[in-house]
Write a protein that binds this DNA or RNA. Structure first.
Lengths: 234, 234
DNA sequence: TCCCAAAAGTGAAATATTTCATCTTTATAT
DNA sequence: ATATAAAGATGAAATATTTCACTTTTGGGA
């Protein structure tokens, strides 16, 4: 049964982190210009925010919620490149190349997102190199995450990779030892680069060894240091 | 015995691709400023251009040669993130984050490189958003390569990955069906994310099946379409 | 509420990959 | 030229991972 939560007023621009940071760099005129080209949207679990292959005309600001970056190779083969939580800048640097989305971005649970028209935004960037560099650095953080992700994938065995993912989700996405994981086992497998049975088996063993406790979609890390050891050995 | 090749005059700035593109965006004064802060270097096979963990003060322009991006996890575990050929912008966007090199960049064969002082360069970028965006897009190309690389690694078996690497080297690095591969089998394994024996076995089989022909470090792709099929099936 | 489909879970067989032992070839230094 | 170490090569055993067949649980819609 779906929780019929009331639709609250969307966040005001003046309370938005992105807006606050932007106002440090931009003139009042530019800020005003930006405001006129922003609109707010809500996405539900599983809804596509950006679609792989589409021509992207917007940059999205993830104000609240969690999203996955997923690459659809074909109907059978899917792949999760990254999972990130608000606040983040989506689209733009970390996503498109020549205006074609390299991958999709999909909501995991409810998401509040502000959309900015790229053409307008691009003009502002061209006029303001310092501001562009700040955003650039933000995009690079995402790049670093990808590289570390890649490294985990490239030279660890499945146990090590699963440990890495659990630590990553706990520390960087849910920011809690205990979290309600809306991803299916299949999706976790698409993130870890292994079969879904492998995720299930590994979760079982970690449960038996009291390293984690799973209860349906709820997951609690009981022994973080043991998980870190598995990551190192993997 | 090492070939004692004579040191030729380094390329003039006015003939450099980067310089030509830059001059489309920058004022004469900025170009002049840039020129004063550039110096040219030559690297030999195996020499480190940027060292992982170092504080980077320069952006490097790879004018001639091939380099690898390598991540050193520990003495035993190394990993090649990417291999690229000139002309490319190294350092900066695709490499550092908060001035710390995320990975090393090492010469594969002889390389000609121009170094630009970052502090001076950063000032120019801040003054010129349009120029910054152009470089930004260039960096994103590198990002796309990483993602495609990641996808290959994440959901293909070793045969498919090795096929991908051979196609990539042929099409994007050496730009030839036949090339003299200075990488050891161990290094290819570090790029493919598998054991060196696996590379050797797979090369043997591909040789037997007349898909490639290896002769020491020389490698020729005999049947590109078969290699593409292996990539798809992998 | 019940029904159905999707997801979760389990264990065994099949397959892929790594590790190991050993040998040959190649490159480098003396 | 010779010695030595590093790289390349090979096949078999050990290990990791996937696939498969099947059962149980969960969640949403009629």
């Amino acid at each position: 049964m779906k929780d019929q939560s009331e639709i609250k007023d969307l966040t005001l621009c003046s309370q938005c982190l992105f807006y606050k940071q932007s106002s440090l760099f931009l003139s009042e005129k530019d800020i005003h210009h930006l405001e006129k080209n922003i609109y707010q949207l809500k996405f539900k679990h599983g809804e596509t925010i950006f679609k792989q292959g589409d021509k992207s005309r917007h940059i999205a600001l993830l104000n609240h919620g969690i999203v996955k970056f997923n690459f659809e190779e074909n109907k059978e083969r899917n792949l999760i490149l990254s999972i990130v939580s608000a606040p983040k800048i989506l689209g733009g640097a970390n996503m498109f190349y020549r205006q074609r989305n390299l991958f999709s971005i999909t909501a995991i649970g409810d998401c509040d997102i502000c959309m900015i028209d790229m053409n307008e935004f691009g003009e502002i960037l061209k006029q303001n190199g310092k501001y562009a560099l700040m955003l650039f650095e933000r995009a690079m953080e995402m790049f670093e995450t990808s590289i570390l992700n890649y490294i985990s994938l490239a030279n660890k065995n499945v146990n090590g990779r699963i440990a890495d993912i659990l630590l990553y989700l706990s520390e960087h996405v849910y920011k809690n030892q205990s979290f309600h994981l809306l991803l299916t086992r299949k999706e976790i497998a698409e993130f870890a680069g292994c079969s879904k049975e492998n995720i299930i088996h590994t979760f079982s063993h970690l449960n038996d060894d009291n390293v984690i406790r799973t209860d349906g979609k709820n997951l609690t890390i009981l022994d973080k240091s043991k998980l870190q050891m598995i990551s190192r050995l993997g």
